[in-house]
C-alpha cells in the first residue's frame, strides 16, 4: 500500500528566543492511500499548523513531509502550488469559497484547475451533498452549512490524492455534520483518496480508520 502522506521528524517553532513555542517536536505520521486519519488535540496545540504544513501552505523548520511521493521540503513555491492544485484537497472551517464565483463555478473550480473536470461527477456530488438546487447562487447567499458542503464538494470534485480537512463540520449541526462526514469518507474510499481530518471532537475522530493526538509537539496514538 502506498502512502498518501508521510511525515518524519517534523519540527516547527513559532517565534524566537525565550518566547519561542515549539508546536511540533520530531513528529512522525503516515496516512496510507485510501485511509482516513483523525488528528485531535487541545486548542492551540498545533493541529492546524500541522495541516497547513502538509498542504505546503506553511514552511517548517526541519524534518520531512512527503506528499503522494513528492517531498515538499524540496518544492519551491510554484511546485507547492502545483501540488495544491492537483494532489491535495483542502477544506477549512470557513472562507473556503471564491466569493465572485457562483456555487456551480466554485464546485467545478478546483477540478478545472487540476484538469480533471467531470461534469457528471460534479452533478452527482451536488446531488449527494444536497446543493443541486443552489447551483446558481453566490457564496454570500448561502448559510454556513451550505457553504461548507460546497467547499467539500469542490474538494472532492477534483479527486485529490489527499484531502486535508480542518474542522470541516464545525459550522454544521450534528446530524448534518455526520451526514457530510459519511459522504466524505465514502467518496474518499471510492476514489482511493486519503483523508486527514483535524478535529477536537472524539466522536468524529472515532469514525476514522485511525487517530493521532497532538500534545506538546508530540504525536501519539491514543490508547
Amino acid at each position: 500500500m502506498t502512502s498518501a502522506l508521510t511525515i518524519e521528524r517534523l519540527c516547527k517553532t513559532f517565534g524566537k528566543g525565550p518566547d519561542a513555542v515549539q508546536v511540533l517536536d520530531n513528529a512522525n505520521l503516515e496516512v496510507p492511500q485510501g485511509q482516513s486519519l483523525a488528528l485531535t488535540g487541545e486548542s492551540g496545540s498545533g493541529k492546524s499548523t500541522l495541516l497547513h504544513i502538509c498542504a505546503g501552505l506553511e514552511p517548517f523548520d526541519s524534518g520531512k513531509v512527503v506528499l503522494a511521493g513528492h517531498d515538499i521540503a524540496d518544492a519551491d513555491d510554484h511546485a507547492r502550488a502545483t501540488l495544491r492544485r492537483g494532489t491535495v484537497g483542502l477544506v477549512f472551517q470557513q472562507f473556503n469559497l471564491v466569493p465572485s464565483l457562483s456555487v456551480a463555478a466554485n464546485l467545478s473550480f478546483q477540478a478545472r484547475l487540476s484538469g480533471r473536470h467531470d461534469p457528471d461527477f460534479v452533478a452527482e456530488l451536488a446531488q449527494r451533498l444536497g446543493i443541486a438546487q443552489l447551483m446558481s447562487r453566490y457564496p454570500e447567499q448561502l448559510s454556513g452549512g451550505q457553504q461548507q458542503r460546497v467547499a467539500i464538494g469542490r474538494c472532492l470534485a477534483a479527486r485529490p490524492r489527499l484531502v486535508l480537512a480542518d474542522e470541516p463540520t464545525g459550522n454544521l449541526d450534528e446530524a448534518t455534520g455526520d451526514a457530510v462526514l459519511d459522504l466524505m469518507m465514502e467518496l474518499a474510499a471510492q476514489a482511493g483518496t486519503a483523508l486527514l481530518l483535524v478535529t477536537h471532537s472524539t466522536r468524529l475522530a472515532s469514525r476514522c480508520n485511525a487517530r493521532v493526538h497532538l500534545r506538546a509537539g508530540k504525536l501519539q496514538v491514543p490508547v
Partner: peptide
Amino acid sequence: LVQLAPLWALGLTTRR
C-alpha cells in the same frame, strides 16, 4: 485578502 486566500489555498501562487 478574504477573496484571494481561497485561491491561494487552491494552488494559485501570490505572484500569479
